[in-house]
Every structure is written in C-alpha cells, then in structure tokens.
C-alpha cells in the first residue's frame, strides 16, 4: 500500500453537496461533527471548498437545476475522490422517483462525467450518523 493511500485513509476531507434533499440527511451529516459522533477523531473533516475535498457527500434526488452544478463540483474536486450518496433520495431518488424536475438518480449524473467514479451508497431516510460513519469506514477499508 502506497503512502499516498495510507495517508488518504487517515485523513478524509469531505465536501457536502445537497442536490435537492429534505434537509434531514444534511442535518445528520452536520451532526457527525458534533460531540456525540465527532468524526474528527477519525480525521474526517467537513471543508468549505470542493478543491480541498477527498470525498463528496451527496444528498438529495438530483434535481435538473442541481445536476449541472453537481457535475461541475465533481470536476473541481481533485482526484482521487470518492462519492458518498447519503439517503434514500440520493441512492435511487426514493419517494420522489419520476418527478418532472428530477434528473437523478445521482450516481447516473456523476457517471456521465466520470464512468469510473468511486461511488458508495448509504441508504436510509435519513441514515443515522452511525450508518454514514460505517459507510465511510467500509469504503476506506475497500481501497
């Protein structure tokens, strides 16, 4: 295992992208930072610019208006970067399936830009913060 990958596993900076969610997943993501879950102890940190990010946490169905921006954000993120789809909506548009303003599912939107993107799914409505942490851990141990 190269040092690069090893260091990446120890320090994951995530950028949070909402593509039309109901806010629940987003709040649970922010909740991961707070004392009860405190992901900083694993080296996970939320950053304010996609250029600093190693992983994108995508929530929401992927509306038409958001899809274009999502692709742009994915392009701006330095590679290697993993994409986490958090919540039922992001994983497969969930209850909003088939809406006229829905471009999703999100994984297809991202695959249009990069067919080899690393995509992980964290289902739930909303997934509990524990589930998200376990999702990140699983992806990291799979690298």
């Amino acid at each position: 295992m190269s040092v690069k990958i090893w260091a990446l596993k120890k320090s994951v900076w995530v950028f949070h992208v909402n593509t039309g969610a109901c806010n629940n997943c987003d709040i649970e993501i922010v909740n991961m930072l707070t004392p009860k879950y405190d992901v900083e102890r694993f080296g996970i940190k939320l950053v304010g610019s996609p250029r600093h990010a190693d992983a994108l946490l995508v929530t929401g169905v992927g509306t038409e208006q958001a899809a274009i921006r999502l692709r742009e954000v994915y392009r701006q993120t330095p590679k290697p970067c993993a994409v986490f789809l958090v919540g039922a909506c992001a994983c497969g548009t969930g209850i909003f399936k088939g809406g006229y303003h829905v471009a999703g599912p999100v994984d297809e939107i991202i695959r249009e830009v990069d067919p080899d993107a690393i995509i992980a799914y964290v289902p739930g409505c909303p997934p509990k913060p524990e589930a998200m942490i376990s999702g990140v851990v699983k992806v990291l141990s799979a690298i």
């Binding site: 909402n18 593509t19 039309g20 969610a21 109901c22 806010n23 629940n24 997943c25 987003d26 709040i27 929401g60 169905v61 509306t63 208006q65 958001a66 921006r69 209850i95 909003f96 399936k97 088939g98 809406g99 006229y100 303003h101 829905v102 409505c125 909303p126």
Partner: peptide, 29 residues
C-alpha cells in the same frame, strides 16, 4: 429551483393515508 422536487406529478398515485409520509419529507426539521 435547486431544491424543487416537483412532487405533484408523481403524487397522483398517493392516497390520503400515504400523503403524511410524503409531506414529512418536504422538510426534515
């Protein structure tokens, strides 16, 4: 418009009893 999910068209199949689950997903908080 980024968050506009346009629920109406897909909701044509929803019944009175199902709608609470839909509207609770308008906003998580």
């Amino acid at each position: 418009s980024y968050n506009h999910r346009g629920i109406e068209k897909l909701s044509e199949t929803l019944q009175f009893d199902q709608i609470p689950f839909l509207v609770s997903r308008i906003c998580g908080i």
